[in-house]
Structures are given as structure tokens and as C-alpha cells.
């Protein structure tokens, strides 16, 4: 065999080897890519399945709830004022401190229908005790005893800090007693979390109405915010209500 021929054979072998290696890389790339796409698709599917199969417990809708079972009404004036609040939300406590009394007086005087919607969007800020959901559920239980506003006000007056454990069920029952809500049914509902599934459902409806934060204030169907997307002042609120009343 001449030297030239041997070189050509070696070259040919090298080329074949290279081609085989390239073919192998192509195959590996193809199959790993298929695998990756499959894994990602499955991951998304798992998320969807987990979400749609989520069991929030038995839904007990409080009979006192109005507006598609999401709110508790005070007064029956011509102007409807909807307030969406989370019992753990500091901005809501500020709003209640500033405008709560005014709104409740207007409701009692039948100037407005005040509809308070408890929602639970801040469960992650109570060390896993889900204070937002528990307190909203407690408010529903209080409504069934005709003491919604009493409990609502005392819970805001005693609002726990974010990232604390929130108020314990016992503490909620104790505070309720201090405002004349002593019924055993209420205490049981709080301790057993009877209305927790309702609170989750009401929060869903809140999101479904395209509201994203608390407090959300709606006057006669139109969301009311102060300048720069802030919580409206009492002044702005009363002005808007008066204008709506005509």
C-alpha cells in the first residue's frame, strides 16, 4: 500500500467518525429537546390540575350575604357604597379609622347602603395561620348573628400586625363577646372555620371583578380612588356620595 493511499483511508475513517459523532449529537439534541418540552408541558399541566382540584372545604354561604353572596349590607340608602377589605390590611385599618364612622353613620341615616366585602388576600402575612381567611369567615359568622358591624369594628380596632400570627380564634371569640356577640353558634363557627371556604370564594369573586388591592371602594358601581391611585380621603368620599345622591 502506498503512503498516499494509507493517508486517504485514515482520512476517510476520520470523516466517517466525525459524521457519526455529529449524527449522535443531533440525535441527543433532538431527544433531549423533545424530553424538555414534554417535561415543561407536564409541569404546566400539573399546576393546572392542582389548581382545578383544589378543595377549599364545604362551601357554606351565609344567609345574610348580599351581592352574589359576597357582602354584608348596612342601611338601605339610595347610594350603594361597596368596601372590599382584608382584616389584616393596614391600609384598610387606616381607611376605617378615617372614614369608617362617617360611612356607618350615613348608612344608619339611610343615605347610603354600605356593603362591606371581607376578602382574604393577605394570608401569607400571618405565619401560616391564615388570619385573613379566618377573620373574614368570623365576620360571616357574626353576620349570621346580626352582629357583623360590631365584629368588623372590633377586629379593626384590634388589628394584628402583618407577619404576626394574627388573632387566635379564641381571641376573636373573646373580642366578639366584648361587643355583645356571645352566641355559641358563632364561637363554633369560628373554631370550626365554617365560613372559610366562603371567604375563599368571596375573594375569588373579588378578583373576578378585576379588583386587585384592598381597600377597594366603589360608589354606585364606579371604583373611587384618590389622586395617584391612593385610598380616597373622607372628604372625597362624602363629596362623591353626595354627588351620586344628586
Amino acid at each position: 500500500m502506498s503512503k498516499g493511499k494509507r493517508d486517504r483511508t485514515t482520512q476517510a475513517r476520520e470523516i466517517v467518525a466525525k459524521q457519526q459523532a455529529a449524527e449522535r449529537r443531533r440525535k441527543v439534541t433532538l431527544w433531549t429537546s423533545v424530553g424538555v418540552v414534554l417535561v415543561l408541558f407536564l409541569a404546566g399541566l400539573v399546576g393546572y390540575t392542582v389548581m382545578s382540584r383544589q378543595d377549599d372545604g364545604t362551601l357554606v354561604t351565609p344567609a345574610a350575604a348580599v351581592d352574589d353572596g359576597t357582602a354584608f349590607a348596612v342601611g338601605n340608602g339610595p347610594v350603594t357604597v361597596d368596601v372590599y377589605e382584608d382584616f389584616l390590611c393596614p391600609a384598610c385599618a387606616n381607611f376605617e379609622k378615617a372614614s369608617g364612622a362617617t360611612l356607618q353613620e350615613m348608612a344608619t341615616a339611610s343615605k347610603i347602603t354600605l356593603r362591606i366585602h371581607p376578602v382574604a388576600i393577605l394570608d401569607r402575612f400571618s405565619n401560616g395561620t391564615e388570619y385573613s381567611t379566618r377573620s373574614a369567615g368570623a365576620a360571616a359568622a357574626a353576620a349570621e348573628e346580626g352582629k357583623f358591624l360590631e365584629l368588623h369594628n372590633v377586629l379593626y380596632a384590634n388589628q394584628p400586625a402583618e407577619n404576626s400570627d394574627g388573632l387566635s380564634n379564641d381571641k376573636i371569640v373573646e373580642l366578639a363577646k366584648s361587643v355583645g356577640l356571645t352566641s355559641e353558634t358563632f364561637a363554633t363557627a369560628v373554631n370550626e372555620g365554617t365560613y372559610k371556604a366562603w371567604a375563599t370564594k368571596a375573594t375569588e369573586k373579588f378578583s373576578d371583578r378585576d379588583f386587585t388591592g384592598t381597600p377597594t371602594i366603589v360608589v354606585n358601581g364606579t371604583q373611587l380612588t384618590g389622586p395617584g391611585d391612593t385610598v380616597p380621603t373622607t372628604e372625597l368620599l362624602t363629596q362623591t356620595i353626595e354627588k351620586a345622591a344628586g
Binding site: V39, L40, L42, A43, G44, L45, V46, G47, Y48, V50, M51, S52
Partner: peptide, 11 residues
């Protein structure tokens, strides 16, 4: 919102 966290973990 449901699919995203699982997708992120898988990635």
C-alpha cells in the same frame, strides 16, 4: 398563575 410556579420549578 397556577401553571407558572410549576413551570419555573421544572425549568
Amino acid at each position: 398563575g397556577a401553571a407558572q410556579p410549576f413551570l419555573e420549578i421544572a425549568l
